[in-house]
Design a protein around this nucleic acid. Structure first.
Lengths: 344, 344
DNA sequence: GCAATTGGCGCAAACGTTTCCAGTAGGTGG
DNA sequence: CCACCTACTGGAAACGTTTGCGCCAATTGC
């Protein structure tokens, strides 16, 4: 191949390798004239610095690792794009990894280890599982990191940076909204163990419901991921028997979409026969004909704050302080909620 | 920091650095016993090889660059996830970049250059613009690459590897399908310059229509990207005047979703008042209540073949042969097409 | 029993940068 | 005129690996 290196540039422009390096890195200790000359030679030869060598030498790679959980929720794909944008704006590149779907075989640790080996400057982990969170805390001294979209309950004192929407508050808002519409007996679909996010949503919803004296039946989610298909089967089972409840709150939009599908098949109308709410406000939910009322996670904000937090941490070297940033969610009202149908 | 290096391992296990390196790389020239000892020390010390150094030294990074066009089409986000999976299965990691949205400011070249500097082993470019394609061909000798989801017309002889669905054939299938339902006068929405993909779809549709003696009005897309909002405005303008056509074919699903939105607002029923087809089969299209009839791009296949093609090219070193792989699309029939309404 | 082969390992030179330290030339103050 | 500073530049040692080549001992072939 015979790639052209910094040594060639040095020779061609009649200076030392050191000087070339300085010229490329905007070192002020160099005469403007010299810099010009060097840069011109670089342009003329089409020289491209070897970033690997640079990273190795300077021990800063300017690459951020992102570990996405392998779930079909498009939330994560979109989030990764937002992350990429913010990172680039701050001079960082993204290295994308994807976790395993099944729990037994969780490869998050392997991925963290890989990324450290790859000398990334920091790790972003959009993941809500308590296991992944604990892992991040364990690698805490080895590499800066921040959890995105989920925060471990404060009282657990887990040493990890996080930025997430306030899931507890968001779920409360949902319950209050349904109450305001007149619902007094509702179902909470998709309670899920092992996820801080879902634990907080569930707790928030139940707390508000209790305060407002609403009855709520919680239906747990069997698997770990939230998919449309899963929401559909759960809802099918639920809707087939006579239901006392007038509204269904789903712990994730994907589940709500499944509920819509099941309702369609049974000839039920939303919100005519019952109201439906989701959580996340994924892209799907805004679609014509879907128009799901839901609690919005501010994806772009999450990504931006996460990247900023991580970069700040990288810049100032490691310190023992952790930040736990909570963003206030917003309720977006669309077409799937209405006052409960009149009693027959 | 004082990271633990290969030298430490060598010292601790009483062998040379060379031997440690060989043990880690499964070099057969080493006694099993020695390998064991070295590996044990590695485990005990939690040693993690510096992959940057390895890449620099071996001049193989095992990283693939992916340049996503910045468009809101979730197609690309999902595709990148598929790509990640396949790449990992073959021992490669993904470095994700995102292009600029606006045409004037196209930064694809800058990104390619960056990735080469980053010493990626190859580049995957899911992009259909003729400009990006030409760029890839230009960098052809500098780095292996393959175009995903789009193929330049064969007769142009552009030196670039590509894997895409057969857009020409897919569009033909769409036209034939509409004809079979009885439509004779249709609109093609979203003809778009500068994109090989769209050029082929348009040509295929028109060719089939001509053969079948259908009338088609082509409405060009003003901007480069295909978004819901764009489809909506185009459709609003179209639907407001009396329309002779009985079906609308959209060059992309996203546009079709916009059409659905516009139809909703005008109180028009699909497929009661007119039939609607898309192209791509993005996730959205399968949603309950949407159920868009469309031509499916096999995302997973595209990603898999693209990665395989790239890896093969990397493995065998550069050669002057280019492969242009076309995958047969399939038509997925859902709920937005029907025979044309009876003439009044 | 000796030459030739082979298996196992180490030395040291890469890979392409950054960066510490030292050096040189010219200017300035006394 | 000398000491000292300032503004640049260069030499060379890192950074943590891989890898071509050579060495030694043990085995093999005859």
């Amino acid at each position: 191949m015979g790639r052209i290196t910094i040594r060639d540039i040095a020779r061609l422009s009649g200076v030392s390798v050191t000087t070339v390096s300085r010229a490329l890195n905007d070192d002020p200790e160099i005469r403007a004239e010299t810099r010009e000359r060097v840069l011109r030679v670089c342009r003329e030869t089409g020289y491209r610095a070897n970033l690997l060598a640079r990273s190795l030498s300077s021990s800063r790679s300017h690459v951020l690792g992102v570990i996405l959980p392998d779930i079909s929720n498009p939330f994560y794909a979109v989030l990764s794009l937002h992350i990429e944008s913010c990172a680039k704006a701050r001079g960082y590149q993204i290295m994308l990894c994807r976790g395993h779907p099944d729990d037994r075989n969780d490869n998050t640790e392997e991925l963290i280890s890989y990324l450290i080996g790859q000398q990334v400057d920091g790790i972003l982990l959009p993941n809500s599982s308590s296991r992944a969170t604990a892992l991040l805390a364990r690698y805490d001294r080895a590499i800066p990191s921040v959890l995105i979209g989920s925060a471990p309950p404060e009282d657990l004192g887990i040493r990890v940076n996080s930025v997430s929407n306030d899931n507890y508050m968001g779920a409360q808002m949902a319950a209050e909204y349904l109450h305001r519409l007149g619902h007094r007996d509702v179902v909470y679909l998709g309670a899920r163990p092992g996820s801080y996010t879902h634990a907080l949503r569930h707790a928030g919803f139940l707390a508000a419901a209790k305060r407002l004296r609403m009855r709520v039946e919680s239906i747990p989610s069997p698997l770990h991921a939230s998919t449309i298909a899963q929401g559909r089967t759960m809802a099918a089972a639920l809707l087939r028997r006579p239901m006392t409840q007038t509204a269904i709150f789903c712990a994730a939009d994907m589940l709500a979409l499944g509920v819509m599908e099941a309702a369609d098949e049974l000839g039920l109308d939303i919100p005519g026969d019952f109201s439906l709410m989701g959580y996340d406000n994924i892209d799907y939910s805004a679609l014509p004909k879907i128009r799901l009322t839901t609690v919005a996670q501010p994806f772009a904000d999450l990504a931006r704050e996460g990247v900023e937090m991580l970069v700040a941490q990288i810049k100032r070297g490691e310190s023992g302080t952790y930040v736990r940033r909570l963003i206030t969610p917003t309720l977006v009202e669309r077409a799937t909620c209405a006052p409960p149908p009149a009693r027959d």
